[in-house]
Every structure is written in structure tokens, then in C-alpha cells.
């Protein structure tokens, strides 16, 4: 999985920032994408490209259970969010709905990955290669159930 980084260097990026409450009435996925990250970055939808990654701090996706948040990001083209930690409902929604990968990274990776860097992520080796900086970081492996649901392609395709 290869892509470029859009970095938000802060903690607690909440779902009101990812997709503001006023748009909760919308359920068209492309329309939602056009409002992604509007709470902190109104230009997001013009700069995001298919296959990009978001990199951010801890407790990413905290706040409401709105699945609109991972939907808006994934339909913008985001393939994975790399964060120090995730809020639980956002994390679950990403995985069970097969929208994008929530990848936990460590402080070192967080510090070193810069906006615009090109990354190559390998799920087999749990490695994140920073092509731009020629560095390699480890991602936190997914727990067993999460790994299985991701491999199946979402909760509905997973056979318990």
C-alpha cells in the first residue's frame, strides 16, 4: 500500500472535526467526502488524492459514533489513518465497515513522518517504509479478531 501523507500534528482529532454535525443528515458518500476534515482543514477535499494516508496524534476519531467520519475519509481517497492511538467506535467502524485501515504507530514514527512524505505500508511485515526519508518504522500489529475482519473485508464477510 503506497501513498502520500497528510499530517495533522495534534491529538484528539474528533468526529466533529472530521465531519461536522450539521452534515449528519447527509448519507450520500461522495457528498460526505466533500466535507471531510472541514472542521480543521476546509481545503482538505481539494488536496487529498486517492491512496493518501492521514498521520495524526493520539485518540484520533474521538467523539460520536457517526460512521460518516470514516466514510467521508475513505471516499476522499484515504486508505489508512496512522495515529498514536484511536478512539474505539471510530476504530471499529473503520474495520467492520472495511472503510480504511486504522494503524497504530509509535512516537518515533509520528515524529519522523512529515507532511507529503511517501510511505509504503506492508501488512505482511507490519512495516512502514518512508520512501522519502529512507526510514522504516514498525506499526503495532492488529489484534487477532481485527486482523481476521480486515482480511475478510469487513464484518459482514467475516465468518466467526
Amino acid at each position: 500500500m503506497k501513498g502520500n501523507v497528510i499530517k495533522y500534528e495534534r491529538d484528539n482529532i474528533d468526529t466533529d472535526v472530521i465531519l461536522p454535525g450539521t452534515y449528519l443528515k447527509l448519507h450520500d458518500y461522495d457528498e460526505l467526502a466533500s466535507h471531510a476534515m472541514e472542521g480543521i482543514d476546509p481545503e482538505f477535499h481539494t488536496k487529498v488524492k486517492e491512496g493518501d494516508f492521514i498521520v495524526s496524534g493520539k485518540n484520533f476519531g474521538c467523539g460520536s459514533s457517526r460512521e460518516h467520519a470514516p466514510i467521508a475519509l475513505s471516499h476522499s481517497g484515504i486508505k489508512a489513518v496512522l495515529a498514536l492511538s484511536f478512539a474505539r467506535i471510530f476504530y471499529r467502524n473503520c474495520v467492520d465497515g472495511a472503510f480504511l485501515l486504522p494503524i497504530e504507530i509509535d512516537e518515533e514514527a509520528y515524529k519522523n513522518i512529515a507532511n507529503g512524505d511517501e510511505l509504503n505500508i506492508s501488512m505482511e511485515t507490519n512495516e512502514i517504509k518512508n520512501v522519502t526519508k529512507n526510514q522504516t518504522y514498525q506499526m503495532k500489529p492488529f489484534s487477532e479478531i481485527i486482523g481476521k475482519i480486515i482480511a475478510a473485508g469487513g464484518l459482514f464477510k467475516f465468518k466467526p
Binding site: 459514533s65 467506535i89 467492520d96 465497515g97
Partner: peptide
């Protein structure tokens, strides 16, 4: 419940937890 504050109802002595749309559909 399809809302993050489903936790509220735990005050009645239930396990009450919020989930997203895919999980609720499931």
C-alpha cells in the same frame, strides 16, 4: 445503540454501548 452516548443507559445496570452503522446493521 447507533449513538456514542448509548453508554448513558448503563446507569440502569445494563451493558450499554454505542456502535456505528455497519455494526448496528449486523
Amino acid at each position: 445503540g447507533g449513538d456514542s452516548h448509548t453508554n448513558t443507559t448503563g446507569a440502569l445496570g445494563a451493558f450499554a454501548c454505542g456502535l456505528g452503522h455497519t455494526d448496528i446493521a449486523y
